Simulated scan of single mutants.
Amino acid sequence: MNLNKILNLSVDCVVFGYDTNTKSLNVLLIKRYLESEKGSKILVDDYVLTGYHVYENETLDESASRVLKELTGLSNLYKKQFKAFGDPDRLKHEKDLIWVEHEKFNLRTITVAYYFLLKTEEVDLKSNKNEAKWFPIGDLPDLGFDHEQIILEAYEDLKIKCLSEPVIFELLPDKFTINEVQDLYQSILQIEIDNRNFRRKLINKKYIIPLDEKQIGVSKKPAQLYMFSKDIYDKMFQKNYLINI
């Protein structure tokens, strides 16, 4: 297999996951750490998105899927290519220059950014070799390169996307309550939604299927569970808002 890298072209992956317990939209980041040769000084200590060079025999989509699988072990997830980042100075902050020299990166690397949607519980962080960690979108750590900009632009794109397509169901368990859907919309859009209005609109959607099941293991009154039917949605899909909030 030809694994020759295109030295000035990479992909970066913004991995979004939603935690139904904390009701927070999170981003999966990996540790970037470098000490001096004698180990007496920490040169770089922050977090970055997962990403890598594109191989000569790959499409951009194939590169992004490969990088995502290497990080999470997962494939066939929702992904969207949303922008290319090519500012001449995007790798030239002081700590980034140290990292670039150590890793022999091309200073004029252009990256094509994707975002992925998955369920946080699907990722095994305990055995992750990259020291991956979830961070709330509103509480990001110190980031390398231009990755804060990439994350925030991915987030803005996701806000728009979740109003026109049912992508939020990629972030929820297969069986969910109406309140969990509402909490997720509120977390992404950073707005308050009228509960009664939202519930009425959602349960009237033919692709939201009520199940003969209720929550288990909750201290309060268990709520009705529902599931999303992609088959029904695809059959009736029209280019309009999923839910008018």
Score class of each variant (00 low, 15 high):
residue 118 L to M: 03
residue 67 V to E: 02
residue 124 D to C: 06
residue 81 Q to D: 02
residue 185 Y to C: 12
residue 124 D to E: 07
residue 120 T to Y: 01
residue 5 K to M: 09
residue 124 D to Q: 02
residue 137 I to G: 08
residue 210 P to M: 00
residue 93 H to P: 00
residue 126 K to C: 06
residue 191 I to T: 05
residue 127 S to Y: 08
residue 202 L to C: 01
residue 219 S to L: 06
residue 172 L to G: 09
residue 218 V to A: 10
residue 134 W to P: 15
residue 38 K to S: 03
residue 114 Y to R: 07
residue 231 D to N: 09
residue 232 I to R: 02
residue 13 C to S: 14
residue 177 T to C: 07
residue 31 K to D: 09
residue 22 T to S: 12
residue 31 K to N: 12
residue 148 E to R: 08
residue 67 V to C: 01
residue 52 Y to M: 07
residue 233 Y to A: 06
residue 176 F to I: 11
residue 231 D to L: 11
residue 227 M to D: 08
residue 169 F to A: 04
residue 28 L to R: 11
residue 137 I to N: 09
residue 163 L to K: 06
residue 35 E to P: 09
residue 154 A to F: 05
residue 8 N to P: 01
residue 77 L to Y: 00
residue 97 L to Q: 08
residue 42 I to V: 15
residue 21 N to Y: 04
residue 203 I to F: 05
residue 94 E to K: 12
residue 160 I to L: 09
residue 104 K to A: 09
residue 146 D to Q: 05
residue 36 S to Y: 12
residue 161 K to L: 05
residue 141 P to H: 04
residue 49 L to N: 05
residue 69 K to I: 01
residue 126 K to V: 10
residue 141 P to F: 02
residue 205 K to M: 11
residue 22 T to Y: 00
residue 77 L to E: 03
residue 166 P to I: 02
residue 186 Q to H: 00
residue 245 I to T: 04
residue 162 C to F: 00
residue 151 I to H: 11
residue 12 D to K: 04
residue 25 L to D: 08
residue 99 W to R: 13
residue 227 M to T: 15
residue 219 S to T: 06
residue 133 K to A: 02
residue 233 Y to S: 11
residue 197 N to R: 10
residue 142 D to G: 00
residue 68 L to I: 04
residue 56 E to L: 10
residue 70 E to Y: 09
